[in-house]
Computed example of a mutant assay.
Amino acid sequence: MGCFGFLKGMMFVFNGIIFLAGAAILGVGIWVKVDSGSILSFLGKIENAPAELSQVLNVGYLLIAIGALLLIIGFLGCCGAIRESQCMLLLFFIIVLLVFIAEVAGAVVILVFRPLADELLTKFGTAAVQNIKKDYGKNPDVTGLWNTTMGTLKCCGFYNSSDFMDSPFYVAHNKEYPSPCCPGFSDPCNQTVADSVMITGCFPKVKKLIDDNTVVIVAVALGIAALEICAMVVSMILFCRIKSRGD
């Protein structure tokens, strides 16, 4: 088979996986934009939400762009290796290099603007709590979304059970909290029971989950960067080998 044939095969398999991943991400992005009842649409209806949140609502477009980019990269890598096309391999190298540079720049921006992100989350938390107090127990969409979130993450409210105080549900149920705030109790979920259980809010739970897996996230990011570097090296090896054979 030889080293050249092995590199061609690895290039084809690796970029075939990228192509399929791109197709999946593209499909999710299209679904997010088409599904008007998605969680992102709900976020857009939160009153007094920070203006910066509107950028988060464009995540569907972001997924579509990422999916399309991965499709192009996968296609160029597969076809460039199999057809031994110098043009495709060179385009593949340039695109992956630009993506790598963008990722490094993005990491730097995240580190520099971390305090701004914390401020944005604080503003969003205030808006989310106000939304709970106004619509939980009255708006079926808001109520269903929070029930699903709390049931899945085993949490209560955005910060804690007090977020539900004075909400329509709290008023209509004689100052009781939703059942996820008092797991394992058959008695009414009142202030006393909720305080004794002290279920973590959904935001602290998600934040803790991210903090606990920081090492994994960093390792994955470094792994992706290493794969991109390897892909660029292999594409250039194939490019130079093909060019030398043609001379």
Score class of each variant (00 low, 15 high):
Lys8Phe: 00
Phe14Pro: 08
Gly16Pro: 08
Ala23Tyr: 03
Gly27Pro: 07
Asp35Ala: 09
Ser36Thr: 12
Ile39Gly: 06
Leu40Val: 09
Leu43Glu: 00
Ile46Thr: 09
Glu47Gly: 14
Pro50Cys: 01
Ala51Cys: 02
Leu62Ala: 12
Ile64Cys: 06
Ile72Val: 15
Ile73Thr: 10
Phe75Val: 09
Ile82Pro: 08
Leu91Val: 07
Phe100Ala: 11
Glu103Cys: 13
Val109Gly: 03
Val112Gly: 05
Asp118Trp: 02
Leu121Thr: 05
Leu121Glu: 00
Leu121Ile: 04
Phe124Gly: 15
Ala127Cys: 06
Ala128Gln: 09
Lys134Thr: 12
Asp135His: 12
Gly144Phe: 01
Thr148Gln: 14
Met150Cys: 07
Gly151Lys: 10
Thr152Arg: 12
Leu153Trp: 07
Asn160Ala: 07
Asn160Val: 02
Asn160Glu: 00
Ser162Gly: 13
Phe164Arg: 12
Val171Lys: 15
Asn174Ala: 11
Asn174Trp: 02
Ser179Tyr: 04
Cys182Lys: 13
Ser186Met: 10
Asn190Arg: 14
Val193Pro: 08
Val193Tyr: 02
Asp195Asn: 14
Gly201Thr: 12
Phe203His: 09
Pro204Phe: 02
Pro204Cys: 05
Lys205Phe: 00
Lys208Val: 01
Thr214Cys: 03
Ala221Tyr: 04
Val233Ile: 15
Val234Glu: 01
Ser235Tyr: 03
Arg241Thr: 09
Ile242Phe: 07
Lys243Gly: 02
Gly246Tyr: 03
